[in-house]
Design a protein around this nucleic acid. Structure first.
Lengths: 338, 338
DNA sequence: GTGAAAGCGCTAACAT
DNA sequence: ATGTTAGCGCTTTCAC
């Protein structure tokens, strides 16, 4: 069923049928009803490829994410899905599994499929080849979660958030605080969060910050356990994301420590599931759905005005420390220690 | 950069350029190298819409899921993504948020975007209008997680799995076992799992099975707490999915009960995160990534042979009961009770 | 092994 | 308010 068939059946020209679907106001009420009727009868729906070929617009947005297995990105994609659907756009996601070389590959694939723009979460905005390619080729893009002055980004102030969290923990009597991260060099976000940790520790005049860098998620629990079973263990663990926090809690448990009585654990991301865990997860919550939605807004606005989102369009959303049960006052004896 | 530009630059016809990309064997080695060279130089990539318009194949697969917020579907989508990418296909996901009327809407949207086929998880395969539409219109589709004799499905034997689980719990000394589900009428999977529960209880000659039906996730914890604080509370809770199991553990905690010493909790799905929780989640694990991958395989095979997947192509994958820390022997006193 | 040409279904400029 | 028509970029038959 092509537009020509419908036109013939309705006794009008293909142009009129096209107008009924794209510029209905230009068509006489009666004619429009007639066309709509015929179209419905034959179950006609305009062919997207033909429209795209003609208009050079696919109404599809590409999305590049590290993984869907981390709920933070799944929640974000959920937001993206809602916002795009509301605008009549569809999405085409691709995941990199945190492999940096997959980023450029994913972008190339999406471009090959003719997406109008791309939303992405990259390992490191400053050095990303994927982002460079997008920019060179004039494909509209917006970074989400990444935060960099040269690119259009939707992000939260990760550095400030962690700095303030250190302050909060210090107030709870913690002086021995360690940070748990993935590989720092593989993530600009982790670096920013770590910078906030260092700044916060310095400001609180606490002793040089311990960093537990976890190279692979598989060994996270072991890595953390090692530190928790040392003679002078930290009383609080600031994890750079919620999944690490979950593993930190497990590590504590394996070391015979109770959370939060013996050790406090905080995460970063605010995944929904954290609210239902036992203990509930303390975390620096980001509005994950909104991050996606705002990114879509930025991107579609640019696409429809035939321009590229600018770094000056960047949006910073509010974060919020959610104090769950995994975080409490420092244990008394440790207070005595310090 | 169109195929014509490349052809002109290389001094060949557009047909030859097309062959270089689609039927390279038909092209003289030298000519091919030349064209490839020119194409690379200009960063040429064939236009997907034009190809789709001409061939009537988009190489895009639509995916309809309830939500991405439940890791079970995120993991499945991950598998789908990998398999499609390996075949040179892209995916276009849409979520229904468990709203049954969104299913048909999502399908219509995907069809409008010209997907070659659809992978879906629906509320109820038997009555789904979305599935009916797909079938009527001759759009290839495969159901995932749903299990129904009239449709091509990739699923596990949910009923048998739960039946066997009841047996396992009975062996552990549990006689007072309750099942926790979402709204039964809204999910054929939950119904099947419940049927397995009833069958298992009967076979184990245990007293009529208690069902805790949780209408809304928001109130799940309250609903479960109510039962756990009753005078003759169950010693084991079989939850129809892992997210409910997490909430059941929380409910137990709020009732002052320890898991698993006072009450055992099991889930269904095998989400990866469950392995890192404390206690680790006991669950009937499905191979979520593989479910997606198998669905893709079935679908693409059909698409490329110009046919529709048949109900006889349905695949049943193996499930496995993962015994985590959330499940243990029934408490002694309760054994005495029974 | 390569080229010429038709046409996939649509939109938009132009004409009436 | 509606019609005519060219052409988006590609693949594929048919011819050579």
């Amino acid at each position: 069923m092509s537009i020509l068939d419908i036109a013939t059946q309705a006794g009008v020209s293909p142009a009129t049928v096209s107008r009924v679907f794209n510029l209905p106001d230009l068509v006489n009420e009666q004619t429009r009803q007639l066309v709509l009727e015929v179209a419905r009868e034959y179950g006609y729906r305009p062919n997207a490829s033909a429209r795209t070929l003609r208009t050079q617009r696919s109404r599809v947005i590409g999305v590049v994410l590290p993984t869907l297995t981390n709920p933070v990105f799944a929640e974000c994609l959920q937001g993206i899905t809602q916002a795009t659907a509301a605008h009549g756009y569809a999405i085409m996601p691709a995941t990199t599994e945190y492999k940096i070389e997959s980023e450029i590959e994913a972008v190339a694939q999406l471009q090959a499929f003719g997406v109008d723009g791309v939303l992405l979460v990259v390992s490191d905005a400053a050095t990303s080849q994927a982002v460079a390619r997008l920019r060179e080729q004039g494909t509209p893009y917006v970074l989400v979660y990444n935060r960099h002055p040269d690119h259009p980004c939707v992000s939260v102030e990760g550095e400030i958030a962690v700095r303030d969290l250190v302050h909060h923990l210090a107030q709870l009597g913690h002086s021995d605080i360690a940070m748990v991260c993935g590989q720092l060099k593989a993530s600009d976000r982790a670096q920013q969060r770590y910078a906030g940790f260092v700044a916060g520790m310095k400001k609180a005049r606490l002793k040089p910050a311990t960093l537990i860098e976890v190279p692979f998620v598989e060994t996270a629990i072991e890595n953390i356990s090692l530190v928790l079973s040392s003679s002078h263990r930290p009383t609080a663990l600031i994890c750079s994301n919620d999944l690490l926090a979950v593993r930190a809690i497990r590590a504590a448990h394996q070391c015979g420590l109770r959370v939060p009585q013996d050790v406090s654990v905080t995460g970063f991301d605010g995944i929904q599931l954290g609210r239902d865990l036992t203990p509930t997860l303390s975390t620096i919550a980001q509005p994950n759905g909104d991050m996606g939605r705002e990114g879509v807004q930025l991107l579609i606005t640019a696409i429809e005005s035939n321009s590229m989102p600018a770094s000056t369009d960047s949006i910073t959303l509010d974060h919020e420390f959610y104090r769950g049960e995994s975080c409490a006052q420092a244990p008394i004896n440790d207070c005595a220690n310090s």
